[in-house]
Design a protein around this nucleic acid. Structure first.
Lengths: 226, 226
DNA sequence: TTATAGTATATTGGATCCAATTTAGTATAG
DNA sequence: CTATACTAAATTGGATCCAATATACTATAA
C-alpha cells in the first residue's frame, strides 16, 4: 500500500525492503569511517547483525559496489574501498567543478527558508563541540546551500562524490586547523549567498573545496611518511 | 585464481559472476533502447533467458537501480527508467560541463595511438550505413578522445551520465540531420585534437553536446505533441 | 626447522522453497 | 450493466540448502 509517514521533515517510506535498510546502514558506517578501509565485510556477520538471511545483505553489497564504496572479489568477499591520494585529489578537483556550478545555480534561486536553514547549520557547525557531529553538520550546511539549484542530477552526483571521500573529510575536520578554516569558509560563503553574490559564492566554494582537498592530501602524505 | 584472457584488446575477466553477466546484458539492452521505457522487467523471464535462478537476476537489478537505469517498487517489480525532457536536458548540461573538462585534460596528453584510434572511429562513424552501429561508434569515438585525460573518476561519471541518455541519443542520431551534424562536429573536434588546440577542442565539444541536447529536446517535444 | 602437500573449515555464489503482496479473474449484489 | 467483494494466479522478498572456491590448519618429508 506504500503508506508513508512524515516525521520531523524526514520522509520514511514504509516501502523500504530489508535490503534497503542494510544498504543505508552499511553506507553510513562506511562513509563515517566506522569501518577501516580494506576491511572485508562478511555477509554472515552482517546478516546476524540484522537477524536476517544473507540474501538481502548480498543485494545491499551489490548496490554499494555499484556506488564504488566497496570492491568485490569472487569467492573472497567485499572489502571497504580504499582510495589513493591521487584518487582523492581527483574527486576534490571534480567537486570543485561541479559544486561550484551547483552553487551558481542555487544562489539566485535560494529561498529565505533555505538561507535560514543554511545559517542554522552553519552556526550549529561552529558551535558544536563533539567532533563526531562535525561531518554531519558540514554536509547538512552544504546541502542546504545546494537544495534550490533545481538540478537533481547534479545533486545525486555530488552526493555520490562526497560519499567516496567523506571518511577522509572527517579525518581532516578532526584536525583543529581544518575545522577552524572550514568554519571561516562557511561563514564567508553564507554571507555571499545572503547578498545574492553568485560570483563570490562560486569562488569561495571553489577555494573552500580546493583548499580542503590540498590540506587533506598533505595530511595523508605526512601520515604515510610517519 | 582470477585467470584472465586478453583478446582483441578486450579484457575478459573470468572472475565475472553470473550476476555480472546479467547486469551487463540488461544494461546493454536498456541503453540501446531495446527495452521500452516503463517496461517492467520480470525476474523470472530474465532468469529463464539465462537458465539461472532469480538470485543473480535480483543482484543485477539492484546494481541497475543504483545506476539509475531502472526504478523499483516493492512487490511490484522494476521498470526501465524513463526520463522527462527536463531531466534529459539537465544531463546534457552536465555533460557539457564535465566532458569539456575531460577533453581539456586529454588533448595535451593525447598519444599518437589515441589520436589514430579516434580517427579510425570517426571515419568508421562517417562511413557506417547501419544506423544500429552509429550509437556504438559515436561512443567509441568520444571515449578515444577522453582516454588520456588521466581522470578515471571523471570517466566513470561521464559513462554513467551517458548511459542514462544513450537511448535518446540513438533516437536522435537516427534522424538524418542529427547524424550529419554529428559527423561534421566529430571531424572538427578531431582536427582540433590533432592540432593540440585544447581551447578549440573544448569549445567544439561543448557546443557539440549542447546542440545535440537542444535538438533532442525539440525532437521529444515535437513527438509528444503529435 | 622449514617447506610442501593434503585436509578441514569458512565463505561466497547459486538453487530451491516459502511467505507476503499484488494483479487478474470471477461471482454476486445493486 | 456496473461496481464491489472475493478468490486464484502471478510476482516479489526472504530463508534455507547445496556447490564452488578460498583460507586455515595439520601432517609429513627434506
Amino acid at each position: 500500500m506504500a503508506s508513508e509517514l512524515n516525521l520531523k521533515g524526514v520522509n520514511l517510506s514504509l516501502t523500504a525492503s530489508t535490503s534497503d535498510v542494510i544498504y543505508d546502514a552499511l553506507r553510513d558506517a562506511i562513509i563515517r569511517g566506522e569501518m577501516a578501509e580494506g576491511e572485508t565485510i562478511r555477509q554472515e556477520s552482517v546478516a546476524k547483525l540484522f537477524s536476517v538471511s544473507r540474501i538481502p545483505v548480498r543485494e545491499a553489497l551489490k548496490r554499494l559496489e555499484a556506488q564504488g564504496l566497496v570492491t568485490s572479489v569472487r569467492y573472497k568477499g567485499v572489502v571497504v574501498a580504499s582510495m589513493s591520494p591521487s584518487e582523492i585529489a581527483e574527486i576534490f578537483e571534480f567537486r570543485v567543478l561541479v559544486e561550484s556550478k551547483v552553487v551558481e545555480y542555487a544562489v539566485e534561486a535560494m529561498t529565505p527558508e533555505s538561507l535560514e536553514l543554511a545559517k542554522g547549520y552553519c552556526e550549529a557547525f561552529a558551535e558544536e563541540t563533539n567532533p563526531a557531529r562535525w561531518g554531519d553538520l558540514n554536509r547538512l550546511f552544504h546541502s542546504a546551500l545546494y537544495r534550490d539549484s533545481g538540478r537533481p542530477y547534479y545533486l545525486e552526483i555530488v552526493q555520490s562524490a562526497n560519499d567516496r571521500v567523506e571518511r577522509y573529510v572527517r579525518a581532516q575536520l578532526d584536525l583543529t586547523e581544518g575545522m577552524a578554516r572550514a568554519r571561516r569558509d562557511h561563514e564567508a560563503i553564507l554571507e555571499a549567498c545572503f547578498k545574492r553574490d553568485a560570483r563570490k559564492a562560486v569562488n569561495l566554494t571553489a577555494s573552500h573545496i580546493h583548499n580542503a582537498g590540498q590540506a587533506l592530501i598533505r595530511f595523508l602524505q605526512k601520515r604515510s611518511e610517519a
